[in-house]
């Protein structure tokens, strides 16, 4: 399938990314080529093949629900670009 600039713009929006004009040209061309390459998968008939989402055939292990100490509030907030009174803080935006 042909990848258009509009498709790239739409996917960028979904992925919360943005590109300048030059990047947009480049990404449109590159994504087109990569997706064209992976089209190779369509040579295979997989109608009766189950997907492998995970290689391990194990169920979710259960354990006792025990309280243990982990990060303090301070430690958890240590890397925040901005924090206020024990919370993660973002700038105030007034949006419609």
């Amino acid at each position: 399938m042909k990848i258009t600039r509009e498709t790239v713009l739409h996917v960028a929006e979904l992925g919360r990314l943005e590109f300048n004009q030059e990047e947009l040209e480049k990404f449109t061309e590159q994504l087109g080529r990569i997706l064209q390459y992976v089209e190779k998968l369509n040579e295979l008939d997989t109608r009766d093949v189950e997907p492998t989402f995970h290689v391990l055939d194990v169920s979710t292990p259960l354990r006792e629900d025990v309280v243990e100490s982990w990060l303090t509030q301070d430690e958890a907030l240590e890397n925040a670009p901005h924090r206020e009174e024990g919370f993660f803080a973002v700038p105030k935006f007034i949006e419609d």
């Binding site: 919360r16 990314l17 590109f19 890397n79 925040a80 670009p81 993660f88 700038p91 935006f93 949006e95």
Partner: peptide, 22 residues
């Protein structure tokens, strides 16, 4: 929001996410 780089000077929350990642 919680850690890592944050782009300064953003116009909206969505703009902040997008610029930070871009």
């Amino acid at each position: 929001v919680r850690y890592g780089f944050r782009s300064p000077h953003c116009e909206s929350l969505r703009d902040m996410y997008t610029k930070t990642r871009a």
